[in-house]
Design a protein around this nucleic acid. Structure first.
Lengths: 347, 347
DNA sequence: AAATGCAATGTCATCGGTAACATCTCGCCT
DNA sequence: AGGCGAGATGTTACCGATGACATTGCATTT
């Protein structure tokens, strides 16, 4: 059913039919009614495709992520984006990247350009130099704006994320404030920027406290629950007097709690455990897990609003009111203190 | 940069340029090289939009879900869909439904029709009669095929999902096989089909064992970790001799374990706990959780392949080989036995 | 040499809308 | 009455690609 069919049936021109569809004022009530009836009868739906073709807007945003889109959504971030997009009248096109070579970046961008997305949320994790292309390939040359999530801030690129250095530092400070002096760290994969930042924060806090010699108490995990236990064991090998661990994710922290229990270590008496993420389940671990909360839903929403704003700006259009505030690029974290570091134990 | 620009620069017609882009054989090597160079120089990218407009295919699939898209992806199902779609050359357009009235169904369908998606994965949960529209609104009248995930099978509709009745029954049978005789159930929200099925399976197993009088030992939860503890308490009120619980989700089961511990109940000595989902973390609960595994990634992949096959069939095209096997509509579950029901306890 | 065939390329219409401009029909003013 | 202006409607071109068909040019055939 095309607009032409409607027009023919109503005995008017395509243009008049188009005017009815778009609520133009220049149509007699009588004509409007007639056309509307024909639309109803024929079950006509305007083709967004055709519209997009000559308006140059698709009202579609591309989301580039990798398998971690799963973790994105663990924290419900993806839901946040979908919802926010919906509210602003956009749809989301999801693409997954499996590797981060320069050529696969190009493939991804081309896909999105071909599909005329109005803007891109770059949610791929920053692994090694996976974001380097943004330096030598000026983003302003792309036909649409990009907002990058949870990555190293860089000049000329809009980023929205957390200060993971500070989060790591504050987490460690919390352990220090509880008189722990042998504080180890189990990081996520160290090619990843987020992991590096948290690790650096941990080191900085130790240094600040004059405990520089503890900085070797560190093991690299993979962010999965399975790597928590083995990492704890390795950490104890390196650093037998360990009395606290700052773990790079709540999932790994669960593995740590599990293993500590099996080894007969009491948490927090023998060893305090601190996570980061604040998964909904962490409050129900045994003992409940102290952790650092980062509001990833908010991150997703802010990023999306910022993107929509940039899109409007490029076209010299006013942007939706909801997007006006979208300046915040570094979001705050929050300490959630629970029993895995605090006084009384349930173990 | 349009094809016309390329053509002009190369001194050929648009059509010839188009032939080069599409690897048609009817072009001299020399011309091809020249056009390719111009494409390179101008940075030309073909517009998928324009292509779609006259081919009638968008190579885009719509995914309709609600907030539970988060849980979809918890189990990585969404990742499974994205990945499978990518392999088959499709992109995914995500839409969220917040309510399931008939009118919001229409809005959703219209959105997707307007955007010319080639097919739809309906992943909205079956709440009450939220899927009823499929009965009186013949799906075959829609301009594109639909595959429904994890819902009540119904005539004329392609569905892919699990036999939750049997899963519930087998879970309960497992508890029975361990000599438990007072087996309660904490369900998910009971307007939901999945919850009803699991509940019915639990009842059926009790009946089979001649324990019909235990069928009142049942409480409704909301699938979240927070509702586990309170539900356990209510269950004990109703049924003080309780010696086992079949819990409708691993998340709630975590809440149950936590609360049991606080109440001084030993798991599994005093009370056996069995979940369903097999979240990656469940093996690390204390004690490790016995659960029923459902491969939601596989579900997503099968559903997507089936959809692509239906799309091809409608157009009398051969379908990709990968889609040939996609007949299975009822997937199997698997019992994962761990310490929360088995002999020795770590508590 | 004329006819034939095929490869290489060009022309035109089309997909489903919309912008820009043209036309038509009134009512109203001088 | 003639002219003007505004509201209602129609015409044409265009967005960026592709399909169908037309044309060109050259080698082969008879």
């Amino acid at each position: 059913m095309t607009l032409a069919d409607v027009a023919k049936m109503a005995g008017v021109s395509k243009q008049t039919a188009s005017r009815v569809v778009n609520d133009s004022a220049q149509v007699t009530e009588e004509t409007r009614a007639r056309v509307l009836k024909c639309i109803e009868v024929l079950g006509f739906r305007p083709s967004a495709l055709a519209r997009q073709l000559n308006s140059g807007r698709s009202y579609t945003l591309g989301v580039v992520a990798n398998a971690e889109i799963g973790y994105l959504t663990n924290g419900a971030a993806y839901v946040g984006m979908v919802r926010q997009a919906d509210q602003l009248g956009y749809a989301l096109l999801s693409k997954e990247m499996r590797e981060f070579s320069r050529s696969s970046v190009d493939i991804m961008l081309n896909h999105l350009i071909e599909r005329h997305v109005d803007g891109i949320i770059w949610a791929g994790p920053e692994i090694g130099d996976s974001h380097a292309w943004m330096n030598d390939y000026p983003i302003d040359d792309l036909p649409m704006p990009i907002v990058v999530i949870n990555a190293h801030p860089r000049a000329g690129v809009d980023t929205v994320g957390f200060d993971n250095f500070l989060a790591g530092k504050n987490a460690t400070r919390h352990l220090l404030s509880l008189q722990r002096r042998h504080i180890g760290h189990i990081s996520g994969p160290m090619q990843r920027w987020v992991s590096q930042q948290r690790w650096a924060g941990w080191r900085a806090a130790l240094e600040e406290a004059g405990l520089a010699e503890e900085q070797s108490c560190y093991v690299e995990g993979d962010w999965e629950v399975t790597s928590g236990g083995p990492s704890l064991r390795r950490l104890l090998d390196v650093c037998p007097q360990l009395d606290a661990v700052f773990v790079g994710s709540d999932r790994m922290a669960l593995g740590v709690l599990h293993e500590a229990h099996r080894m007969g270590l009491r948490v927090p008496e023998d060893i305090a455990v601190m996570g980061i993420d604040n998964d909904p389940q962490s409050a129900y671990f045994m003992p409940p897990l102290t952790t650092m909360h980062q509001n990833t839903v908010l991150m997703a929403e802010v990023a999306l609003r910022l993107l929509v704003r940039r899109i409007s700006e490029r076209r010299d259009e006013p942007y939706p009111a909801a997007c006006a505030e979208a300046e915040a690029t570094v979001l705050t974290h929050e300490l959630i203190a629970r029993e895995s570091t605090l006084g009384k134990s349930t173990a």
